Simulated scan of single mutants.
Amino acid sequence: MKSQLTNELSSKPHYPILDGLRGIAAIIVVTFHIAEPFSTGNLDKLVNHGYLAVDFFFLLSGFVIGYAYDDRWQKTTVGTFFKRRIERLQPMVVLGMTLGAIGFYFTDSNLWPLIHTVPVWKVLLVTLIGYTILPVPLSLDIRGWQEMHPLNSVGWSLFFEYIANILYAVWIRKFSTLALSILVGIASIALVHLAVTNGDVSGGWTLNVEQVRIGFTRTMYPFFAGLLLSRIAKPTQIKNAFTWCSLLVALILYMPRIGGAEYLWLNGIYDAVCIIIVFALIVYLGASGVMQSQKENRICKFLGKISYPLYMVHYPLVYFYVAWISNNKGITMGQAWPYALLILIGGIILAYISLKWYDEPVRKWLRKKLA
């Protein structure tokens, strides 16, 4: 059954433009984190809406999961589904946490003054918990940023990705299109409430009630809206879709803050409209897109392949960058840009090396072991 499912999944038409868009968003996430140390808060971040890339990833993921599995459940099992998700996601989770642990004591900074007082056993414990993608309690917050995963900050979104996958496989895949539409409608109301009352949807990476609520709210709408879109959308043939969709993703994520401190709700409306309407439109256009050339196809393929590794390995590098900026008070973005560019290029190179020398071989090995 496993080999039959693999053959059937691989025989389905692929959406290379969606892969390319995932890569574009991953690169923008890196620029978001690189620019973040020069802000005093959400109001003045240079890449102000970079956090919305996570919501875009969730919607993409829901669409792709629905497209790949929604009509396969008579031929597969929940266990097989989870094996395939573990095979796809977990190797890079392990590598990302390992890189974070290796670099932990070397990111000495006044931001994290207690790093060198953390015993090795505690770092190893946090690393082992990180390998499972389960969040660590605040008592094990060894960096002091109140992160679920203090060795690799981005792990929080993978935690919620797994929850969405579990909900889908165990329960929500059985929903009719009408029931799924009702769920998505309710989730959209919760998302709008969060965005408008908070002024944005940023958050979800701390293990407390409020942040976990934000994480669930950010996950439920886009993931299951993507699933719904995979059921009801009928892709057409659209030219230059990759170019226009890439520009639209960049425009949304690089958009400056809207409304300022006096009108936080305006930015919340912007976030909600982007997630609920615009991201769904982008995914539909991307799925409908026609490759314009072999070169465009190769670009999309490359961006798609490095997108997940880049997302999972860049933040251990960012810790070094943030520590350097913190230890050099008064440095400006104009002075730091060569180092920022080095982090961006180095992250892409590290992602490609991780893909070829680690992720693909390990996934191939896991595929045989879990078959």
Rank of each mutant, 00 (worst) to 15 (best):
K2F: 07
S3K: 14
Q4D: 09
L5T: 05
S11M: 14
G20S: 12
R22E: 10
R22I: 08
G23I: 07
I24S: 08
I24H: 04
I28K: 03
I28L: 15
P37N: 10
T40C: 00
V47F: 03
H49R: 06
D70P: 12
D70I: 13
G79F: 14
F81R: 12
K83N: 07
Q90L: 08
Q90N: 06
V93G: 05
V94G: 02
M97E: 07
G103S: 00
F104A: 00
F106H: 05
H116M: 10
V118G: 09
K122V: 03
T127S: 04
I129V: 13
I129Y: 07
V136C: 09
D141K: 11
R143H: 09
G144V: 04
E147W: 13
P150V: 03
Y162M: 10
A169W: 11
K174W: 01
L180S: 09
I182E: 06
L183G: 01
I186K: 01
A190T: 15
L191Q: 11
L191A: 06
V196Y: 08
T206S: 15
G215L: 02
M220Y: 00
L228Y: 04
A233L: 07
T236P: 03
I238K: 13
N240G: 08
A241Y: 01
F242K: 11
T243G: 03
L247R: 09
L247I: 15
L251G: 11
M255N: 09
G260C: 13
Y263P: 00
W265Q: 15
N267F: 01
G268C: 08
G268N: 06
F279N: 12
Y284I: 11
S293Q: 09
E296L: 06
S307N: 06
Y308L: 13
M312Q: 12
H314T: 04
A323E: 09
W324H: 15
I325H: 12
S326D: 12
N327A: 14
N327H: 05
N327F: 05
M333E: 01
G334C: 05
A336R: 10
W337V: 02
I343W: 01
L350F: 05
I353A: 12
Y358A: 13
E360F: 04
E360L: 09
R367S: 15
